[in-house]
Amino acid sequence: MSPSFRDGFREGFRAFLPLSVGLIPWALVTGLTMSGVGFTPLQAMGMNVIVFAGTAQLGTLPLIAAGSPVWLIVITAFVLNLRFIIFSAAIARGFRGVPAGARWLSGHLLTDGAFATCLERMLSHPDPQWRLGYYLGPSIWSWLLWQVFAFCGVMAAGSIPRGWSLEFMATIALIVLLVPMARVRPMLVAALVGGGLAVALRGMPLRLGVIVAIVAGIAAGFAAESWRGKDLP
């Protein structure tokens, strides 16, 4: 482990630490839900380690509980994680000079929070070791929090009052990531279109509305940028 890897690791961890609290209620809720579906603690933690994807886990649990066919459950999980193809492509340049094994690990550990935290520095820092550290710091911390607090949720199933709405802390974490981005006009357009369409299309099956909203939001931001570009000399 090179010193620059350790430097990056520490800096990435520090940048992500305050945002990471948003994962805790989400992991607790996922743990509670997995127990609620009837998983044993071993099965619940097995899913949590193997799948490691909050939205996909929470989205497929009702289907598993209902005894749905395996293909439907798997396709639903895939669709719920489609947005990560976009994230993966956007951050890929940050992994030049990083060996294949570390890339697979990094891919498996990719989350909304790690992506939003790391993207800018990943694309601008010259040292591949530093970049890998800067990415793995937040990612490994997310993984640990996710496992520990999902386990707490599994163990605590039934004794945490639902009225506390703790899962809203995850929404606040995403808002905290979104606010600085939306200071740039085309980004704001992308966010407004993406958010508006996600609400408008919430009735689409398999949460496909979210995918349509993201694609339309990206197109709107791109269009807003080109439009503004024409007005300037």
């Binding site: 909304d112 993406g194 939001g217 990206i218 197109a219 709107a220 791109f222």
Partner: peptide
């Protein structure tokens, strides 16, 4: 265009 992915996706999850 992908630079707008995070803003669009985060808003689509939050809204």
């Amino acid at each position: 265009a992908l630079r707008y992915a995070p803003a669009a996706a985060l808003a689509a999850i939050v809204a």
